[in-house]
Amino acid sequence: TEYKLVVVGAGGVGKSALTIQLIQNHFVDEYDPTIEDSYRKQVVIDGETCLLDILDTAGQEEYSAMRDQYMRTGEGFLCVFAINNTKSFEDIHQYREQIKRVKDSDDVPMVLVGNKCDLAARTVESRQAQDLARSYGIPYIETSAKTRQGVEDAFYTLVREIRQH
């Protein structure tokens, strides 16, 4: 089974770092803004072998026109913010609204991801993020692309959301 996953969120929150940590098991430290990259990885989730087709997208506003296209083809979405960047957390709402509009559905598989949880300088409390996820009816997972904490959990949870859909 193949799953088309799309990673969305503001610029600099760590979308590529999360994806590369999942696929290649290493942490990319330097920031190089993405336009669009796709990665494929075969994994076993709950005993089922599946192929993850992951689209890593641009957070930069100037590429926002490309969003409709990949939102149409994606089956599930990782909505990523950084726990030390309140603005990126506030941006999640717009991504969710755009996904709902493009998919013409209120019920699209999504996982809210709070990345950079290895950093002490948190400005978005776990509780705020949990409340937001609960209001959307989606899971919330904290990750660190640096330490790998929660990385597999985030992507695998999204696959489970798609399966249950």
Rank of each mutant, 00 (worst) to 15 (best):
D106L: 14
Y3I: 11
I45C: 10
D53E: 07
E97Q: 14
V44R: 10
V6R: 03
Y31C: 03
L78H: 00
R134A: 10
D32M: 03
Q164M: 06
Q94A: 14
S64R: 08
V124E: 12
D107N: 13
G11E: 10
A121N: 09
I54W: 02
D153E: 12
A17Y: 00
L78K: 01
S38Q: 07
P33M: 03
S64L: 10
R96S: 08
E61S: 13
I35W: 04
V111F: 02
V113A: 04
T1I: 13
L52G: 02
R134F: 06
T73P: 08
G59W: 03
N115E: 01
A65I: 15
F77Y: 12
R40C: 07
L22N: 15
S144Q: 13
Q60M: 14
I23Y: 09
V6C: 08
V159L: 13
V108G: 03
L112S: 01
S38P: 01
L158S: 02
L119N: 15
V151D: 07
T49G: 08
D29M: 09
L22A: 15
Q130Y: 11
R96A: 12
E2L: 06
R101I: 05
T86Y: 09
Y63C: 13
G14Y: 00
D56E: 01
K146W: 14
M66G: 13
Q60C: 15
R163G: 09
R67N: 14
T19S: 13
L119M: 14
E142F: 03
R122H: 12
I138A: 05
E30L: 04
Q69K: 09
G12D: 14
K116A: 15
G12Q: 13
Y140E: 01
D118V: 03
E161F: 10
G59D: 03
E161A: 13
K116N: 15
G74N: 05
Y136G: 04
Y39H: 01
D106G: 13
K100L: 13
E2Q: 04
R160I: 03
I20R: 01
K15Q: 01
N115A: 15
A65Q: 13
K15A: 00
D153T: 07
G114Y: 02
K15V: 00
R127T: 12
L112G: 01
L132G: 04
A121I: 06
E90W: 07
Y156T: 13
Q42S: 12
D107M: 13
D107Y: 10
K100D: 05
S144H: 11
G74K: 05
E62P: 15
S88W: 08
G150F: 06
V80K: 00
T19Q: 03
V6P: 02
S88M: 08
Q42E: 11
Y70D: 15
S16E: 01
Y140S: 02
V111Y: 04
I35H: 03
T57Y: 03
S144G: 12
D153F: 05
V8A: 04
M71K: 09
F77S: 01
V13C: 15
K100P: 03
Q128L: 10
D37P: 00
Q60W: 15
N115Y: 02
R96Y: 14
